[in-house]
Structures are given as C-alpha cells and as structure tokens.
C-alpha cells in the first residue's frame, strides 16, 4: 500500500519533471543573456585562466568554494564528534592483517606517484580539468591505499590538523589580501600572467593549491576516522 502510493507519487513527479525539462530543451542555450559569456570572457581576458570552471569556482564564485571547504571541514569535525572514542581505543589498527607482499610493495611504489598525481592535478587546476578538490581527493585516496594495505600505517593527526589549518588560513589570507588591497574579498593581488602559462591567473592557482592541501587533509582525516571505527 505504502509502496503503491510512493510509486504513484513518484510517477506524477517524474511526469512533471520530464515535462518541464524536455520543455527546457537539450543542447541549446535557453536564455537570452546570462552570466555565462561574462564568465568566459572574464576568465580569458581578465584573469588569464584557461580553465573557466576553475576561474568560476575560485574567483567568480570563490565564496562558494570557501563554503564548500568549510563543509568538508565541518564534515570531518562532525565525523570526529560522532565517531568519538576514548583515548585508549585510538591505538587500534585500521586493518586486521596486512595485505600480501605484492600489494604492499605495489602500494608503496604507487603511493608517491599518486600523491604526485594529486599534486599535479591541483597545481594545474587552472590549466586543465581538475583542481584542488580533485587533487586533494586523489591524495587522500593514496593515503587510503596505504592505510588499508599496511597493518599499522598511521597518519599523524596533528600533522593533518596543521596542514588543514594552514591551508585554510592561506586561502582566507589570500582572500583578505584582496580585501585589503583591492577592497574586495578574493580579488586578485598577483600579476595575471599569460593564458595557459603555469604561473598564470594570479592568485587562483595558489588558492587552488591551498584548497588541494586542505581537502586532502580533510578527506584523509575523514577516512582515517571512519576506518578506525571498530566495534
């Protein structure tokens, strides 16, 4: 009975949604004048950032990113609160036994390259797809690999906190620098450079690096916490 009601309701919802979205249309621009062109041109001409998504995420709508980073920060904080355990339990290992030697040595060799890959992704955030979030996630995944293959691989919580906090502070202080220099938070204070140069886009690349470090530390913290949760 309940399922039937839900199914009927979902069908109605689906009909409405399909109706409006197919009405909106696919593959065409739906509005006469929007912010899209402003972003594209602004990114190319003013900011000299080739990846428009990056320039939107970091500069045009950089406030969203600040919030987003905060969301992850909060998530790791809330996770720590939810899965809190007394001190004596923390020494527990993440996995019961180590993996085979093949996997272990493979992971050992892969780990630096994964971290490097992550670093590459967020350093080139303004040139190619990816950026702070993706790079940070990749690094965190690398840590995860180590955590689950080795029996007692541990990540220093303090060090994570340091990285996280400093990266966050860096982000905000760059924003505040814009605030003090150009009277607008997150405004660019460095030279823009040339399109498609590694050192282009001024403050954007640096902010994305900060975001990358922060996200990496936060996600590692999340994974670490949730992995060490055992009954």
């Amino acid at each position: 009975m309940k399922k039937a009601i839900i199914l009927i309701s979902l069908t109605i919802l689906g009909v409405y949604l399909i109706d409006i979205f197919t009405g909106i249309g696919f593959g065409t621009q739906h509005f006469a004048s929007g912010v899209k062109d402003a972003y594209l041109i602004g990114s190319k001409e003013t900011l000299r950032v080739s990846n428009v998504v990056t320039s939107i995420v970091v500069n045009f709508r950089g406030f969203d990113t600040l919030g987003e980073v905060t969301v992850l920060f909060l998530a790791s904080m809330a996770l720590g609160g939810i899965l809190y355990k007394k001190r004596h339990d923390v020494g527990e290992r993440s996995v019961l036994f180590p993996s085979t030697r093949i996997v272990m040595s493979g992971a050992k060799l892969l780990f630096p390259s994964i971290v490097l890959l992550g670093a590459y992704v967020f350093i080139h955030g303004h040139l190619s797809p990816g950026g702070g979030f993706q790079g940070g996630t990749i690094i965190a995944t690398g840590f995860l690999l180590m955590l689950i293959t080795y029996r007692n691989y541990s990540v220093s919580h303090n060090r994570l906190s340091w990285v996280e906090s400093l990266a966050g502070v860096l982000f905000i202080s760059l924003g505040l620098a814009g605030y003090f220099v150009h009277d607008s938070f997150l405004a660019n204070v460095f030279p823009e450079g040339k399109l498609n140069d590694l050192f282009s886009g001024g403050v954007i690349g640096i902010i994305y690096v900060a975001v990358g470090f922060k996200v990496a530390a936060e996600l590692t913290g999340i994974i670490y916490t949730i992995l060490h949760e055992k009954d």
Binding site: L96, F97, P98, L117, S128, I148
Partner: peptide, 27 residues
C-alpha cells in the same frame, strides 16, 4: 586535457578494487 580524467580514473578505480578485495578477505 581529457587525458587527465582517464589518468585519475584509472588510478582511483584500482584503489576501489583493492578496497573491495580487502573487504572480501575480511581484512
């Protein structure tokens, strides 16, 4: 630039498989 996606994709898919394997061997 799409190659980046492939690269990341390959690496992370591998880690996912390893996690599942580790789960399956109850480690």
């Amino acid at each position: 630039i799409y190659l980046d996606v492939a690269l990341v994709y390959g690496v992370l898919g591998f880690i996912g498989v390893i996690v599942i394997a580790r789960y399956l061997e109850k480690a």
